[in-house]
């Protein structure tokens, strides 16, 4: 039996069919009935990737744009079902993938905090209980009742991050959101994530900032074109990532 905070992914693969990836119209569908089906190009955004993390461990996902980092994060977060292999995550997962995306611009900041907390799996009571500390950390207490569209993008990102780190979760999946806000806020974010780790929670971090990766995660997985190329100590993974050839031939994100 697995304990909360555990992540186990076995040879996960995600395939995208390129010709099917846009909305069809009836006309196109009708034309297709009579024509030869166009050749379908398979793109494996991710293949043969395995991840094993115990409770309280931290893993950095490294690699260039389009190497499959975010896709892997989405599989672990239960947002995307893998085409092959299996991903098992025990405990409450908090996927922080461009969190501000969930904000409805016409609702007030406090309403958005409640709604987004609910989107991430909290009950209404849990959300209300946490909203105080959330606004305090984001330093936005004065703006509780202001529609989110009137907040600056920096304020929105701060609110979103603050909400995220105040939610109860055994597992935190973070995608580049550390790059929000000014330097001082970033420093507090790093502090907060370090505290998150000290509390024995599991962390998976996608980042291009190799120093951040080394500071927060002892282990790293380096992806290239959707395939794992190195798994081990972050220092070594970072060195390899630096030495990867430029101008990636891999698929776009």
């Amino acid at each position: 039996m697995s304990s909360p905070g555990e992540i186990r992914a076995e040879s996960v693969g995600v395939r995208f069919r390129l010709t099917h990836e846009r909305p069809l119209t009836f006309k196109e569908a009708a034309v297709r009935l009579f024509r030869q089906p166009r050749s379908v190009e398979d793109l494996w955004a991710l293949r043969g990737v395995s991840v094993e993390l115990g409770p309280g461990e931290a893993l950095a996902l490294l690699g260039r744009n389009g190497s499959g980092k975010s896709t892997l994060l989405r599989v672990l977060g239960g947002i995307l079902d893998p085409t092959e292999g299996r991903a098992e995550v025990t405990g409450r997962v908090l996927p922080l993938i461009e969190i501000a995306a969930g904000f409805l611009p016409d609702l007030s900041a406090i309403e958005n905090v409640h709604l987004n907390a609910a989107l991430l799996g909290l009950t209404r009571r849990e959300a209300v209980e946490r909203s105080g500390p959330v606004f305090e950390f984001a330093e936005l207490a004065r703006f509780r009742d202001v529609p989110v569209r009137l907040l600056s993008s920096g304020m929105q990102a701060r609110l979103a991050f603050s909400l995220a780190v105040h939610l109860p979760a055994e597992i935190l999946l973070v995608d580049e959101v550390l790059a929000v806000g000014d330097l001082e806020f970033q420093a507090r974010c790093h502090e907060r994530i370090a505290a998150f780790r000290r509390e024995g929670r599991t962390l998976v971090l996608v980042t291009h900032d190799l120093e951040t990766a080394e500071r927060l995660c002892p282990r790293a997985l380096l992806l290239e074109g959707g395939r794992p190329v190195f798994s081990g100590p972050t220092r070594e993974a970072a060195a390899r990532a630096r030495s990867l050839p430029h101008a990636p031939p891999g698929p776009a994100a």
């Binding site: 947002i79 995306a101 969930g102 989107l119």
Partner: peptide, 9 residues
């Protein structure tokens, strides 16, 4: 749609 791509809901 954007939400569906970002949150497990």
């Amino acid at each position: 749609g954007t939400l569906l791509r970002k949150v497990a809901v």
